[in-house]
Amino acid sequence: MIGIKTEKKMTSRENILSRAKANKPDLLELPVINVEVFADGKDLLEEFTKKVEVVGGNVVEQNVSETIFSQVSKMYPDAKVNYATLEGAGDFNTVSLEALKKPHELENLDVLILESILGVAENGAVWLSDGQLPIRVLPFITNHLVIVLKKENIVPFLHQAYPILAKKDNDFGVFISGPSKTADIEQSLVIGAHGAMTLTVVLK
């Protein structure tokens, strides 16, 4: 017979799992998602642009007559510290990520250009993940964020976004919708809380 003293004390893990098992109701079915009920026939590009603007960002078309780097430089004439992950950045990049000892040194980054592989029309969000982010803090620590997105990579809803993401192994990823913001002081919207103060999506 096992006496109370010899009985091993249950760990919290076992305790929680056994209580969850004992206290849960009979198994309920998982609902099936039928994405067709959400279809609203909106034009993807129009909706995406509208939503990015609603959340405080800008949408511009990439100029065919110049490089993205000269186009962005003109948008931020006062910027001193710039970085782009795109090929051919050359002189545009004033910092070398390899030379950084820690990500904190990016504190004064003015303008960052990244490429996104996915945009969502219903909420103006763009996806960034480890594949496009050599250092995770980059899109948060920069003052101004510019994201290049191909028009054909815009999907209508999050429901269409996740199957695309499921095929990729993302160690870290983020949907970003507009610049950072807060309304914590008397509900007045202020753009520029801890993250980027402006966000521009360049469509190509």
């Binding site: 939503k51 609603v54 959340v55 969502v120 219903e122 909420n123 103006g124 969000a125 993940s129 948060f140 999050l158 993302n170 160690d171 870290f172 990823g173 983020v174 949907f175 970003i176 919708s177 507009g178 610049p179 950072s180 913001k181 993250g195």
Partner: peptide, 13 residues
Amino acid sequence: GQPITTYSSHFKK
């Protein structure tokens, strides 16, 4: 009333 929060961060590793 926002369509999504500004940041929806997916942490894995």
